[in-house]
């Protein structure tokens, strides 16, 4: 199990995992992100908040180069991860995505068994040498996603037969099974009921001990509950970035304040 007895790490020791410099994103001729600079720290939950269409999901999809799959999307500037630019010519997006996992807004389990869903990533990346190792990876990932006790007796059943909350946790298990370094979550709770949401939120808190987690949410309460750092996006601009407590209690920018107090959104 996860080592929860380990003492909390000192904030000073946390190094920067991802740093974005002058990032611009265009869809065709439309600019979705303007001149964005941000530093995301390791072993931290960073929340992106802002009104819909503000570019938060777009930026999230830049971090694992998912935007490459959209023909009209174009990314400028640089996003450094552990000191190297992920948009360099030599970087293989396939390898990058193995390091940067992603969980989507709507649960999207493959129409395969629960086991195969979780084992898919390790299988394609060749992380297990034999069946026993694979079983262990699957179990660990499902335990990590707090799903193991619910599904351990029906691993061969279809992943699409689970409830919405279970499906989303299955997707999280699928993402953590490849042992990523960063986990991106795009509004992971928006399709879930309150109980499932709180389960997923608990999970995020646990995952922080191993990954850097970046979560996009439209719920400010959620951001306040789960994150240590918060970034506020508005109309393609990163307006304000800082400790979650500061953003919610002492916003520096009038737009942030307006959003938090519910006047824009």
């Amino acid at each position: 199990m996860y080592d929860t007895t380990r003492p909390e790490m000192n904030v000073d020791q946390l190094h920067t995992k991802i740093s974005a410099r002058n990032v611009q994103v265009f869809y065709g001729t439309k600019q979705a992100i303007k001149d964005l600079n941000v530093e995301i720290q390791d072993k931290t939950v960073t929340a992106f908040i802002g009104p819909s269409g503000c570019g938060k999901s777009t930026f999230l999809r830049c971090i694992n180069r998912m935007n490459d799959t959209i023909d009209s999307a174009r990314v400028e500037g640089e996003i450094m991860m552990d000191g190297s630019n992920i948009y360099d010519r030599g970087v293989d997006p396939v390898q990058l995505r193995a390091k940067v996992g992603m969980v989507f807004q709507k649960p999207n389990p493959f129409p395969k068994s629960i086991y195969d869903n979780v084992a898919y990533g390790p299988k394609i990346h060749g992380l297990a040498r034999n069946k026993a190792e694979m079983d262990e990876i699957v179990e660990t990932a499902l335990r990590g996603a707090a799903l193991w006790t619910e599904v351990k007796d029906r691993l061969q059943e279809s992943g699409t037969g689970l409830s919405g909350g279970q499906q989303q946790r299955l997707c999280i298990a699928r993402a953590v099974a490849t042992a990523p370094e960063v986990l991106l979550m795009d509004e992971p709770c928006s399709a879930l009921d309150p109980i499932a949401t709180s389960q997923v939120e608990e999970l995020i808190e646990q995952l922080r001990s191993q990954f850097s987690v970046v979560i996009v949410t439209h719920s400010m309460q959620q951001a306040a509950r789960v994150s240590q750092k918060t970034a506020f996006f508005h109309l393609g601009n990163l307006v304000e970035y800082g400790d979650t407590d500061d953003i919610f209690t002492r916003p520096q920018d009038s737009r942030t304040e307006a959003y938090i107090s519910g006047r824009i959104g």
Binding site: T69, R97, F110
Partner: peptide
Amino acid sequence: VPRSLRDGAIALGATRSE
């Protein structure tokens, strides 16, 4: 096939052929 399935696989680091 819904786009979300394709995205799911690609985000796991699957190549296009996979």
